[in-house]
Nucleic acid binder design. Structure first.
Lengths: 340, 340
DNA sequence: GACTGGCACTCGTTACAGTCGAGTGCCAGG
DNA sequence: CCTGGCACTCGACTGTAACGAGTGCCAGTC
């Protein structure tokens, strides 16, 4: 199964042409558009081998060749280099991201930017709570038996939750609770909080014990169990580009998948070491997305990773370009987060 | 141009049949499925009149009739009664909405519920800040020159914003600022805050003056100017039901419109008196949505309205059913909000 | 041994003609 | 005013034929 250099060049040419024209590419067109230095007949022989090996296929007998998922995989792994971004793109990124006033703003701008630059569907995960630390916990009395618990994380995320207290609690006690809770939890990683919350209950003075117990339950629910990952999405209209050719005529499964946060988190949230990840077609574990590819990476201030972002589109996508854009955007967002 | 009762009955029958079958309906099929008591020929004469008046049209010469936007309008205004919800639907609503722990949760559950019940795209506006009152303002020191401003509204919404201070501010002063700000603003409607904020600056003690000025700027920006309306969306996959017949083959314009929050707010946010609003086809001001209809209404605790919600779908939709569902869900959500 | 030109073959696409039938408009009669 | 009948329209479907892009294979050449 040796694939010599020319066969690889042929595969690369097929992928590039197909991505840009969206039409099966034949041997003749190929030699015309690329300087392969050989005749169509030779290319045909190479194509036959590539097809045998499963890298390309013919939609119909009398049509040109189209890359298979496996072909894209080889292309991405060995045949493409990450395109450097154009200065215009760099400027677009900077212009888009400066002036963001809070985390919501950063995430929204980022997701729109990604969608616009790649012309694909963009997905951005909010900084994961599990990877954040508690900056401050605030307790706001709503009534004598109700508190609003507000947690501010170092990543800028703010979560709130209403707490129904077992009985009336005077304002002074709320102040005490606030102090105790912050002394114990401020600065802690959210994933480390359960034992601390436990300790909080045990160490609470007797008159605060019942309230603290309730509070602890809510704390654990909100901060740990519920995990409360959030996702922003943009550019779904880009799915309709390329007519109905991509996604074999129905956007349905894709749109359904995009509504499932769990699915999206799996796609872009698995932050392995900070490399960029590319999932092509059926490499994807979700049936609904077997016609789609995902390019994703982690982002975060400095070297730490607090969330993922990426783009989703047809397997017929510009991988080098999208990989470059996703990386660049992730880096800029990381810098932005590091600043605050 | 008198339309007698039978002609109206014919129009109603056409709308109902077309909505359920998705196919142009002819005179013969009509008399078979509805007890009109007359022959197909008579129905044809009625149809000719209805067509002349612009209530129905023929897609092709030899096809049946299809309602026009105007026909749907007449149907909605005069020919349909709001369907009572089935007990199953009522149960579904209750089951879906109980157990919501915070505002985000309420909104997300609501929008998914609406999408599921109506099988259309559902849109829910978060309680509008302009219609909310300040419950509490919290200032959390991030560093000596940075504060996190957190506003909790009576509707449950929480907004935060980072404030860059002109110079270092000791913790005691933050406490003072917090007290001053809350004394002045707590309980005020957000739309009434600008003069109050102005007063805050003027009345601030000299040593807090510069800080308060900065804070005031951010307060106005965050609470008033930015307006910060939020929207939740669900059920976009429902757009693909009915194949490509609805929306004349392209979801593109619809998906684009759904990404524009401004557009969505205009659609469901115009809370006139608390009636349900129906926008049919080209009654809509956005070109992208000329093939769509929107059913929306306001919701809020008790009689006040704090936001809008609704569904969007093809003009060929079940208006009576969707109107009933939208109303019912809005009422339930209102009750839920009133409880807290 | 690798490449090339030539050629027969496949098969999807397009065009065209013909048939079918749903649905209509109109009219004369009840 | 309603009805049955009838001629008419026109889209949907079917079958045939021509077309052409693209292929696989093979014999010949460097």
């Amino acid at each position: 199964m040796g694939l010599d250099d020319r066969k690889l060049a042929v595969l690369r040419a097929i992928v590039e042409d197909y991505v840009s024209t969206q039409e099966p590419v034949g041997s003749k067109a190929l030699v015309e558009r690329h300087q392969l230095g050989v005749s169509p007949a030779t290319v045909r022989n190479d194509m036959a081998v590539l097809e045998e090996e499963g890298y390309i296929r013919q939609p119909h007998t009398s049509a040109g060749r189209v890359p298979t998922d496996r072909g894209y995989r080889l292309f991405v792994d060995r045949l493409s280099r990450v395109k450097p971004l154009s200065p215009a793109e760099r400027r677009a990124i900077e212009r888009f991201l400066v002036g963001a006033v809070d985390l919501d703003d950063v995430v929204h701008r980022t997701v729109r930017l990604l969608a616009q630059l790649t012309r694909q569907v963009a997905v951005v995960q909010y900084p994961s709570l599990a990877r954040s630390s508690v900056r401050h916990l605030e307790l706001v009395p709503i009534s004598t038996t109700r508190l609003m618990l507000v947690m501010i994380a170092d990543t800028g995320r703010v979560e709130q939750r209403l707490v129904e207290l077992p009985g009336p609690v005077p304002a002074d006690n709320v102040t005490d609770l606030r102090r105790l809770v912050n002394e114990k939890l401020a600065g802690a990683r959210l994933s480390d909080t359960p034992p601390l919350v436990q300790a909080l209950v045990e160490e609470a003075p007797a008159e605060l014990r019942p309230t603290m117990t309730t509070l602890a339950t809510v704390l654990l629910e909100t901060l740990v169990e519920r995990h409360e990952e959030r996702i922003a999405l943009a550019g779904t209209a880009n799915l309709t580009r390329g007519g109905l050719l991509d996604f074999q005529g129905s956007l349905r499964p894709i749109l359904e998948a995009l509504e499932e946060e769990v699915v999206l988190l799996k796609l872009i949230g698995e932050t392995e070491p900070s490399t960029t990840r590319v999932l092509i077609g059926d490499e994807n574990e979700f049936d609904n997305l077997r016609a789609a590819s995902v390019v994703s990476t982690g982002y975060g201030p400095g070297a730490t990773i607090v969330g993922g972002l990426g783009v989703l589109g047809p397997t017929r996508m510009d991988y080098p370009g999208n990989i470059a854009t996703v990386r660049a955007v992730a880096r800029y967002v990381g810098e932005l987060l590091a600043q605050n």
